[in-house]
Design a protein around this nucleic acid. Structure first.
Lengths: 145, 145
DNA sequence: CCCCAAGAGTTGATGTGTCAACTCTAGCCT
DNA sequence: AGGCTAGAGTTGACACATCAACTCTTGGGG
């Protein structure tokens, strides 16, 4: 296996740099316009109906503890509510509040517009196709599920 | 400005998913084989000669406070050393220790091999070209310096 | 029936990044 | 000289992710 050439490193650095800038821009937009983080946005759009915490964690592909911590913070801010899950009285159900539902809608519009502006509008169809095929190949290789 | 279609969202989700998986793989490799994080790796390879903290922060494109916190942790582990900066006796200089220099070398080899294996070897020339041109365009647009 | 093992969720410790507030030094202005 | 301000660096508070340890409930065996 050949070592990395300096062109290889330059390519890699440029790519990762662009990635960081993009993520930073989008995060700031979401924070500035909606007051939420990207993780919170993911929860809001995934939690379209009441579900169990574990179900939400699976849908997001995150660890349970990450979800639990985040839900605690979001519950404190009134975006989600833990509910009695029937059997046994443990509060294992989770659902959006009215406020959460409202935010989910506006955040989707705002974030979508930002993605379109920062990314989609500046991609040629060939670039988009190349990126899509690379992404799918990597996911298939790393996550053979 | 048109809204995001569901194909747009699917494209975006796939891309970000691949990106997260890739970063996670590389981070784990660096942690497992060298015991350092990606941020620490960046410091080790950037700090080839003694410099001021601010100079290091500029070279990395990071905030000063992030660098200060990270240096504190790395100093505690013996990878870098703060030095008297001459004038005034404040310790504003920073340099690698012998241990840090040794780690920088081996980590560069290990990390480079991982990048080649996970990324470069699985990119077609068209994909690489598309990613490079997109990255350069985004950097130029967001960071017009 | 009682105990206990498995599953679901939570919690605490630690590492990390960001923002704002702070300290220290040096240089300038009067 | 005395004081003010700008720049450099640090620190503290908080948000977040991960890991391991913990609690609570349920559903079996004995």
């Amino acid at each position: 296996m050949a070592n990395m050439s300096s062109e290889d490193w330059a390519f890699w650095d440029t790519w990762m740099r662009a990635q960081r800038l993009l993520v930073r821009e989008l995060d700031r937009g979401l924070q500035r316009d909606c007051g939420i983080s990207k993780a919170e946005f993911s929860v809001l759009v995934t939690l379209r109906r009441p579900m169990r915490v574990g179900e939400l964690a699976d849908a997001l592909g995150w660890e349970k503890s990450r979800v639990a911590h985040l839900l605690t913070r979001m519950e404190k801010r009134g975006l989600v509510a833990r509910t009695e899950d029937g059997a046994g009285g443990r509060r294992t159900g989770i659902e959006l509040t009215g406020e959460g539902r409202r935010l989910a809608g506006s955040a989707t519009r705002v974030h979508g517009a930002n993605i379109r502006r920062h990314v989609l509008d500046s991609l040629t169809p060939e670039q988009a196709a190349a990126i899509r095929s690379w992404s799918e190949a990597l996911i298939a290789r790393v996550e053979p599920s």
